[in-house]
Design a protein around this nucleic acid. Structure first.
Lengths: 340, 340
DNA sequence: ACGGCGCGCCCAAACGTTTGGGTAGCATGC
DNA sequence: GCATGCTACCCAAACGTTTGGGCGCGCCGT
């Protein structure tokens, strides 16, 4: 039952102990139930199973991978795991992977192309069967190169090119916020738009801008600022917005962290979020509800996105045709836009 | 330079192309510079290196692991990666691992013993060289079992038994907060103490309680409540504190998330953090500074903890004797205790 | 002239699996 | 009595490395 500190149990050990050939043992232990009865008599099958169990046999994955040319490993690249959004997506990936007997390597690329390249190289050197990118640039030149090498992969969180991806319907989410703010009567609004290379920020902003455009309001350029996706970035971007003349009456930050940064900046300017200026975020991270001024945001199914991403990859690996999925977001209205 | 979609380059391919034996190529490519010159003439070395480069040779890690019985893999267990503290620690681990040519498997156990067991089994089945536990229970019975199997491992974030660990000096951190609140004149204080099985919460609480005890103040039991380590948990625990008669004048939550939850609970009760009730957290996560009421907290070197954890494991794997490290925390005073 | 030595390389086994292809023994059909 | 077929196995090669041990050859010393 337990493998103690001695060397791991191998097929040969089992075979020798039972006076059988290693191939017989292999077939019995590995093959599906129906095949195992072709490989040996049911009495033998029983004996093998029993001993394997007693000795705690675990196949050596390196030997298996070497032989089968399949590692059951998938590589996952994310900008950073300390971003709760990506961490949650990864949790979904890992959970789904576990269910399929796959293992995952995650690694941080900090959205730096050079790291993306290097880490991809490292991961591929580990002979993963496929990859999941959570850090895709909309401009998919790097991914084109990966695809050209025949590496199977899918994207999560961000879309890029025509590669299969699982994303939140960010455009729709942006619209939802736009329509919400419109319904509250805000006409002079601003967007903290995120990094220009990430489809998430782009699509959310676009959805938002389109909602306003359809209401006959075109935001002037200085009302849209780029930012990093974290609190610091949101803070800085909001400072910039506030420095440029009269403040807007509402701010849409394309993710919750940027929104929290925005709250910090408002605080520094003596402005109260929700009453003086409405603020909305995106993702509905667990903190959003707990903030002193609870944050209006769009719930994106992060965990689910990870699960589906892995499923998509798994299907791709089995040779199926796959197509991208866009998951439905949900508007969550709280005091940061409604004031109490 | 680039491996296209054809099969990966092997040593044999190189050897055949060059009319050499695969063992020669292996020695040249693998051995340290000094040895490689024993293995072949410098002209040959040159030829081999050049071709390997051109063809993009990458050793097959499965073959290597199989042969050497070393995988250069380390398994990492954390309660959950969506906790920014653990995610940041993991970033440190991964960074340090990369520098040493190691790869890491991370997996979430949600602090559930059954998952810890199961995931450890999975990780060991992958034949990792060692493990890092970020989810240790102070009661180290599970770890004892792992140790008995001869698996090399270290702990990060939490200590347990006498196993080598890299932690923040949580006790000291707790004292710091205690002394800070004392210096502000708070005598009726409460602790949101975290889960009872995690040394972090235990030590932080104890340090805090000791600081108060030394000042002649013993907190009554109802002033110390347990909680999960997230915002929800902190919220609930604070509700409990507030429900029990007259509120304390200050609350120490043993991590920032619980503190944010506490802020949420205060808000629900119409209390203003920092002015009505002082609140302190622990970890100085990036959000702490951005909150509408910036949070007083203790900065713990999370990234560094991860790096050191991996270093410790690496040394352990080389057969060195290692001993635990406790990293110094730093008090960060903000408006949540000083009111502005 | 000859033993010895080191250079530069080759040989082969081994790591633990998987898998296509045997084969011995026995029962069955005719 | 013999071909046929099935059961229950065994055989051996292969996956890509690493590594202890060769071995031929040219050169040096005496």
């Amino acid at each position: 039952m337990s493998a103690d500190k001695s060397a791991p149990v191998t097929l040969r050990m089992l075979a020798d102990r039972l006076g059988l050939h290693v191939s017989t043992v292999s077939r019995v232990l590995h093959a599906k139930p129906d095949e195992s009865h072709r490989a040996a008599s049911s009495a033998t099958v029983e004996r093998i199973r029993k001993l394997a169990d007693e000795l705690g046999y675990r196949p050596n994955p390196h030997a298996t991978s070497l032989r089968t040319q399949r590692s059951n490993l998938v590589g996952v690249l994310v900008p950073r795991l300390s971003d709760i959004v990506l961490a949650t997506i990864y949790e979904g990936i890992e959970e789904a992977a576990g269910e399929r007997g796959l293992s995952t390597f995650v690694t941080n690329t900090r959205d730096v192309p050079e790291f993306q390249r290097a880490r991809t190289e490292m991961v591929l050197a580990r002979r993963v069967d496929g990859m999941i990118f959570g850090d895709a640039y909309v401009d998919a030149t790097f991914l084109d190169a990966v695809a050209a090498r025949g590496v199977p992969f899918v994207l999560v969180s961000r879309r890029a090119g025509d590669f299969p991806s699982v994303t939140c319907d960010d455009y729709l989410g942006g619209r939802m916020i736009g329509e919400h703010l419109l319904s509250l009567g805000h006409t002079d609004v601003a967007v903290v738009a995120g990094e220009p290379y990430a489809s998430t920020g782009i699509d959310r902003s676009q959805g938002f801008l389109d909602a306003y455009a359809e209401a006959g309001i075109d935001l002037p350029p200085h009302r849209v600022t780029q930012s990093r996706f974290d609190a610091r970035g949101g803070h800085a971007a909001t400072e910039q917005l506030l420095a440029a003349g009269s403040p807007p009456t509402a701010i849409f930050a394309v993710n919750d962290f940027a929104a929290i940064g925005a709250l910090g900046a408002l605080r520094d300017h003596g402005l109260r979020a929700g009453t003086d200026i409405a603020v909305a975020g995106f993702n509905d991270t667990p903190l959003a509800a707990e903030l002193p001024v609870p944050l209006t945001t769009v719930r994106s199914p992060m965990h689910e996105m990870g699960r589906r991403g892995l499923d998509l990859l798994a299907r791709l690996l089995q040779g199926e045709e796959v197509k991208s999925e866009r998951l439905r977001p949900e508007l969550v209205i709280r005091a940061s836009t409604t004031g109490q």
